[in-house]
């Protein structure tokens, strides 16, 4: 059941991207999609259940460690992209005095 909930998170992010008119909101929608994705992968790695993938003491069944290793990378990627996007937002605000897509895209020349 829980993988399905994470998909709702992803789709909510997509809905937000297709409707929000503010740049900061768009940035956060991307972050939401990314969080949903991370939760999805971790949940799918846990379909059978098991303990954490640390082999100290007596461990009989573990969850898949690959999703966890890959998701560390994804988190770092996501955070850097958010940082870059927010810095661009600040700069856009300094230049245009607004962070609405409409006002920013309308003044290209």
């Amino acid at each position: 059941m829980s993988p399905i909930l994470t998909i709702i998170v992803i789709l909510v992010g997509l809905y937000g991207l297709a409707t929000s008119k503010n740049i900061i909101k768009s940035v956060f929608c991307v972050t939401i999609i990314e969080s949903g994705l991370i939760l999805l992968f971790l949940n799918l790695g846990n379909l059978e259940g098991g303990s954490i993938p640390i082999l100290s003491g007596l461990v009989e069944n573990i969850v898949d460690p690959i999703p966890q290793a890959l998701m560390i990378t994804t988190i770092v990627i996501g955070s850097t992209i958010t940082a870059l996007a927010l810095m661009l937002c600040i700069k856009i605000f300094h230049h245009f005095g607004s962070i609405e897509w409409k006002e920013v895209l309308g003044r290209e020349e």
Binding site: P53, D64, P65, I66, Q68
Partner: peptide, 21 residues
């Protein structure tokens, strides 16, 4: 479950890391 089984059996002996991640 290929990845899971592989790392459960060989992860510690091949990498020397108790934390498989």
């Amino acid at each position: 479950t290929f990845g899971k089984d592989y790392f459960f059996e060989n992860g510690l002996s091949e990498t020397g890391s108790v934390n498989l991640v």
